[in-house]
Design a protein around this nucleic acid. Structure first.
Lengths: 378, 378
DNA sequence: TTGTAAGCGTTATCAT
DNA sequence: ATGATAACGCTTACAA
């Protein structure tokens, strides 16, 4: 029995008895405080009694009758990815402030998103935030009768979403590298189909194309969006370059910072100098990006704000459901808000490409690490 | 209305009607499947009807009558700290596998742990995991009637806990540095009173003392247990050393990796060479520790396992409450399990102290960064 | 303004 | 083995 002290819980009935009023009156006073169609004197008595008894409303009971739980679900693929930790943190903050609980779900190998949705459904969750769990591929009726907000998922579906300017992020990275003078690029992207990351890729590739530069397919790698994935992909990239099968890229863009950090690490291990030989740009601007050497140039994405915004949108959606109030302002806020802006953060991992003579440096990367004096402070 | 399609939810009553049995019979079949004191033929019919109708039990309703919610709360001070992210991830995994939902709460400035407990209480949470939120300082009756498991909190209270060998972690760090030949130490610890971190500190200090070395108070700094905190504390340490007010430490232990990474960063910025001039040891072994240069020597703490263990302990506690079954095995598992072992991970941020001549290096740290060739690969 | 009655979807305690 | 019947604690009409 999870509940020790069986009969010790104070209910509205107890409060009613002590205040000398009926039980519904107590409910009236204690629930929607503003509505208050109750005599001020009675209200006082009820509040006093409740306080004295230490009354706490039973949210489950309220939920049963109202068919809702005042709780939000949030499903992410990986809690340990700092980006998602930020998103969760932002959503939790807003939810808690608005009186909603947050049911955290990690979708993955062990328990897929579908099963989490099943569970959440059974708990009469008010709404759910899905971030990068492939909502497009989800069974349509899993979301049936649920209020959903998508984060960085493809738009156009039944559900509203919040998003970052993912394509813009890729574009910023490309433009930065192009401006530095780079012409031979590589990209490490996600192995699975995550919309937000794919959009970054697309933005990057298209910006290159606009500049008349092509990204050769051998320079496009796929790996899990983790440090280990980035590390492995970079190793493979270097090995292929050494074997002569690559057009010797001088600049690398990674779908997120974890991958970029893994790539950076692989470079350090292999003795490839960053940024002298290879420039690397990440995406997200997680805290870690500023701690490595050289500091990672990246595109900052406001993850926490993203989570907060998703929660706010979801909660607002609960207040005035999409179906109701067709006379409300045409499309005030209902359509997905415009994407959150991203911005380039230039740090130490990018520089002008090596002079032509040295351009083959990646291919003949020394086996033993070699260091070079760093340029500036910071 | 969070619940669209008002009357579309399938209940046991609907199933009963379709199966031609009474509603409680449906409940009997669908709830505790093993107990099954129901005719196999009836059972079949019920199951079939339920499947056809797509019945999903209403957990809230069940919770109301059983006075429990099949949900666990977890309160941590900072979701974005990778250590807690790991703990949460471990706990979530176990909980989900056992059919429990996880209500995530971040205690802090905006919403203190007390308010979260209040909320959780109202949701008839089955139990709650508290990690580093200062359970000792919590109002006793906030935990009233709650099943609680503490992580890295002081033992001896009413509630069981799981812990890591925090003192051992500090000791390992000290012994490692002592073995390298260090004699002048510094420590950066938490500003607030977090038991686990304090224990690391104590283990460190005591191990030093056992070796006949004292940690001077000027070398003991307090800061928020974050990167920024570590950075600031390290800067102060260096400034004081430069001013001649410090015994020029050659080795630094930090209460956790975030702080250590901040300190490392501050050193890089100030041009203090690690490990040549100053050795740094962290604690936790978060992923980031292997990504910085030099890689951070640290004491590995199995955070994810810690969270998983806490969840398991809590769930077991729900099955057989502490009060019941006094005839159970004397103390089989009820007392806090022994601390999870930690282990030293030696990496690049520690080395022998500089030769005596160079010992004042910290004090006369150059303003501009200066680099030195690294020793080995890895 | 307030009390009475009904019901939310379950589980639990009885008879049958 | 199964079916009434009563909770569980609350909100929501509807009377008074």
């Amino acid at each position: 029995m999870p509940q020790r002290s069986a009969k010790l819980r104070v209910t509205t009935k107890d409060v009613a008895a002590r205040a000398g009023v009926s039980q519904p009156t107590v409910s009236l006073v204690l629930s929607r405080s503003a509505h208050a169609r109750v005599a001020p004197e009675t209200r006082e008595r009820v509040l006093k009694a409740a306080a004295e008894l230490g009354y706490r409303p039973n949210v489950l009971a309220r939920g049963l009758v109202q068919r809702r739980s005042y709780a939000l679900g949030i499903i992410v693929p990986d809690i340990r990815n700092p980006f998602f930790a930020d998103v969760i943190s932002g959503a939790e903050r807003v939810a808690a402030e608005e009186g909603y609980a947050v049911l955290l779900c990690e979708a993955g190998d062990a328990i897929p998103a579908e099963r989490h949705l099943e569970t959440l459904h059974g708990r009469l969750i008010d709404g759910v935030i899905l971030d990068a769990v492939g909502a497009a591929a989800l069974d349509e009726n899993m979301l049936q009768g649920l209020n959903v907000v998508l984060i960085d998922e493809p738009p156009g579906g039944r559900w509203p979403g919040v998003a970052t300017d993912a394509a813009g992020a890729g574009r910023l990275a490309a433009e930065h590298l192009l401006a530095l003078g780079h012409r031979r690029f590589a990209f490490i992207g996600p192995a699975v189909d995550v919309h937000g990351l794919r959009l970054r890729e697309r933005g990057f590739v298209q910006a290159l194309r606009s500049a008349g530069v092509a990204l050769e397919s051998a320079a496009l790698r796929r790996a899990p969006a983790t440090v280990a994935g980035g590390q492995a992909a970079m190793r493979a990239l270097l090995a292929d370059a050494a074997a002569g099968g690559l057009p010797r890229p001088t600049a690398l863009f990674c779908a997120n910072d974890l991958v970029a950090l893994g790539a950076l690490k692989a470079c350090a291990t292999a003795g490839v100098r960053v940024p002298e030989t290879l420039s690397i740009v990440g995406c997200d601007d997680i805290e870690m990006a500023r701690l490595v050497t050289p500091e990672l140039t990246t595109v900052a994405v406001p993850a926490r704000e993203l989570g907060a915004r998703a929660a706010r949108l979801l909660i607002r959606q609960l207040a005035d459901p999409p179906d109701a109030k067709p006379d409300a302002k045409p499309d005030a806020g209902r359509p997905s808000q415009r994407p959150l802006p991203v911005r380039l953060v230039t740090r130490g991992s990018t520089a002008a490409p090596p002079p032509p003579d040295d351009a083959a440096a990646v291919a003949r990367a020394p086996q033993r690490p070699r260091r070079v004096p760093r340029k500036g402070g910071r």
